[in-house]
Nucleic acid binder design. Structure first.
Lengths: 143, 143
DNA sequence: GGGAGATTCACCCGAAAGTATGAGGGAAAA
DNA sequence: TTTTCCCTCATACTTTCGGGTGAATCTCCC
């Protein structure tokens, strides 16, 4: 959280610097005020989208697609000892995503996904992601 | 989606108008260029966050429910173009077996399994076995 | 304030998976 | 007979996975 805000500030700083740079290089020519403002708007919007996604990331991916009510989560999960994050990774695995894609989706690094994967494999006593998915379904923790 | 973009455009319009308004009312006094740009940045960031949240909001995934019992094999399979052998491989994949294990189970070589795997991936338009399994279930050709 | 667990990330390394290409044989259709 | 599709297998190469280790933060709880 703090890191995100810091990162945002940093990106803003870069943005401001970039703007100044553009100023010095091109403003004297034919960049109009409208274009300048538009550019700022676009960049800030992009940053905002990114920010929004990052800040609301801890939002449960859990309640995303379960169609019908599906919530033997708490009980089963604590039985098995799966943490929330591990479960999220497992769910995305079940959707057929690669580790890299999971990393992008959860805004974490590839290495972190691997760590979660290894841990949940241990807890589920499996060796491959496909087995993990299968086991997850059998245990009733995956749709 | 379209509505969101439209809404966004609308808000941008309002924003621009607001800016103009502020211009006429106060720019002549002590609003500096930096404050002006900053204001735009903040507003656009807010809009961006809102946009991001709206666009990535969990959407209802309408999964094709299997409903009826399970045997649309022939039909679906010929639709997709999966051969019998490829389907066998897919089924064993769904059980979480590795390529080597599938090879042993079917009494064929590892390379052959890989070939079947590649072919069925093409036909299902996926890149990974986990995706293939997922897609297979959605298509109703896997339990 | 310190411990426990969760989360994050990094590095290395070997194994498994997947891609691309070629090729031989069998069975059925043209 | 020729064509076509399927099954089989191989080699070589790239990418992804998974194991192992270590470590920095953070949060929650005692």
């Amino acid at each position: 959280m703090k890191k995100t805000i810091l990162l945002y500030a940093l990106m803003m700083a870069v943005l401001v610097w970039l703007m100044k740079f553009i100023d010095y290089r091109f403003f004297v020519r034919d960049i109009t005020m409208e274009m300048y403002v538009g550019l700022i708007g676009i960049l800030c919007t992009a940053l905002g989208i990114w920010m929004g996604l990052r800040l609301t990331r801890p939002k449960m991916v859990v309640t995303e697609a379960p169609a019908r009510a599906f919530l033997p989560n708490e009980k089963k999960l604590s039985e098995i000892g799966l943490s929330e994050r591990e479960f999220e990774v497992l769910q995305l695995m079940a959707e057929g995503l690669s580790n890299q894609e999971i990393a992008d989706r959860l805004f974490i690094s590839l290495n972190t996904v691997k760590t979660h994967a290894s841990n949940l494999f241990m807890k589920l006593e499996v060796k491959r992601r496909t087995q993990a998915v299968q086991t997850g379904k059998n245990l009733g923790i995956l749709a």
